[in-house]
Nucleic acid binder design. Structure first.
Lengths: 332, 332
DNA sequence: TTGTAGGCGTTATCAA
DNA sequence: TTGATAACGCCTACAA
């Protein structure tokens, strides 16, 4: 890390003076206008270099017509899936010259009531809601919004999300292909969990028995353990379990270990979300990858379209998930 | 999520007109100035409410003397430790009215060469570098900087970091107290790893044998597995292993499982960082908590001090870590 | 306690 | 192709 000398940041005036041109000319160069003579352009760029000039974003967005900024509302920094989502968003938005500003529910509480408040103050051009939107987010109707990875519960917002039902079907197909005939599903109370279960049932399509335990509340590791316990107590013959998400799957793994059941020899386990946790060699959990990168990219593209044409009708895009087989599932 | 009607955002002029006062008066109310009559204040607040007015951050930071914004440079969003760090930073900074803007190395590349570039454009008042600072970050000497959770390699920056050596001592004390007499250390090539090893050796203080394997390169799960393999091959009698971090510890757990060695019955394992992974019931890894929240709070406080008095000498604060015993360590 | 006027660093509109 | 000059929305003396 280097430290460079500097007092007060240089302004466009300083650059203009040093290059011997008007401030307008500097502005044109900054905007890559083609109608600037090569000579002047070079002089300006040289001055910019020498002064270590950097346009003030505040002044730019105040004077300009657009802020070129997109706000991303994360439900919680702890949910790692946002990392991939951001990657996709970057691909779609950043390359178009948009700056991304991320905030989770708590990042600037105190200053702003909600992260959205802050974004509105920044005059962002659009907002991406990552995950299930809070019901009390007050967003102006004129603000382009897209919900990424959750069901939109608001009128004029696009949705780009994982096809949970298709994922459920994939889980079923995987376990059936491995020869399992007595299956289990464990889930929690959420729309995603429901969809995944529905898909799973549809995928099994009567070709195997399916025992189901859906616990009320959050999909925690503990819930996973309890759900699995209930499942096995009621249906000892189950040889493969589909958990609504990786966290619950982890809880299931704990419970299985505690019962002295081996994975995958005695019981196969498959999760959902393909979290970093599942991908570790130690856990090696077979899981359904919800393809967050694609969701991010899709959300970004959709947001751009909506910014360009705010009158667009709300659409809902489902991204096809992908099964990642690891060592927790095996043939019967 | 609600959608509220709105066209163009209201300005301070709109508020002033509606409340029947001057723009200055509105500004005073916004800044919570005490010398405004209750009557006018109420009128202004009412107008603000009705117009859904929200000050433009761009205009505020342009007109004001300070931006009230702090930039946080994360090395990588995937390193979960930043979550706690942010919590601490929020406590220290946000409550003082500072807005936090976070960016990882890639967030706005393309627009800006480095996240720091973007922060400089935003005229942030200070920068927090989370983790080991990149050697090529160009930061003006006049910018207050504090490195949180890494060794500062730059002159005028404060450092607030975990006391890795103390953590190593704790690991040693823990294992000695459990009666282990043949210990192992596995690490990678990093300053933190070195410090932890040094502390570990010092903590053991000749009261037990210590076999060491330090692999060059990144501290990955694979490296952890390989390091443990080497360790056990050379020293089969080792009954407890201290890994320089949780990720390597996880690799060690894999390798132990593959060798049919039980944890903690045959071998105890202790990691470092107390990552969410370690805290899961399934993994249950004994680890050293580096107390990121405290590091964040300390860094925030230090940054405030430096902003208030830029001439301050650089200081280095070490935060005492804490051992979290879980199920991967047991008495010999 | 309240209002007036100038300025913050850009972009945008017109002329030249 | 360039250069004045007016916004942009707010803060901050300075006046009243």
């Amino acid at each position: 890390m280097q430290i460079m000398g500097a007092g007060k940041p240089a302004t466009i005036y300083d650059v203009a003076a040093r290059a011997g041109v008007s401030k307008s000319l500097v502005s044109l160069v900054l905007q890559r206008s083609p109608r600037v003579s090569q000579q002047r352009r070079d002089a300006v760029l040289k001055a910019i270099q020498e002064l270590d000039y950097r346009p003030s974003t505040a002044a730019v967005s105040l004077a300009g017509t657009r802020s070129r900024t997109i706000g991303v509302v994360l439900d919680d920094f702890r949910n790692q899936w946002f990392v991939d989502l951001l990657t996709g968003l970057r691909e779609a938005l950043q390359d178009q010259g948009h700056r991304l500003v991320v905030a989770d529910r708590f990042l600037n509480t105190g200053l702003d009531v909600s992260p959205v408040e802050g974004f509105l103050s920044m005059r962002v051009e659009g907002i991406v809601i990552a995950g299930e939107p809070d019901t009390d987010l007050a967003i102006p109707a004129s603000m382009p919004v897209v919900v990424a990875g959750g069901r939109a519960t608001l009128p004029r917002a696009d949705t780009v999300a994982n096809d949970d039902r298709a994922g459920g079907v994939m889980a079923a197909a995987h376990l059936l292909a491995l020869g399992h005939t007595s299956l289990g599903f464990i889930g929690a109370s959420s729309a995603a969990s429901d969809e995944r279960r529905t898909g799973f049932s549809a995928g099994v399509d009567g070709k195997a028995e399916v025992a189901t335990v859906v616990l009320p509340g959050e999909p925690t590791e503990g819930a996973g353990s309890r759900a699995l316990a209930q499942l096995l107590d009621a249906h000892p013959g189950v040889t493969a379990v589909f958990a609504a998400n990786d966290v619950m799957a982890l809880g299931a793994l704990s419970e299985l270990a505690e019962r002295g059941l081996r994975v995958p020899e005695d019981v196969s386990v498959i999760g959902y979300d393909d979290t970093p946790l599942a991908a570790t060699r130690y856990v090696g959990l077979t899981s359904i990858d919800d393809r967050s990168v694609e969701i991010g990219r899709g959300a970004g593209e959709r947001l751009l379209a909506r910014i360009a044409d705010p009158g667009l009708a709300a659409t809902e895009v489902l991204v096809e998930p992908r099964l990642v087989a690891r060592r927790t599932t095996a043939a019967r």
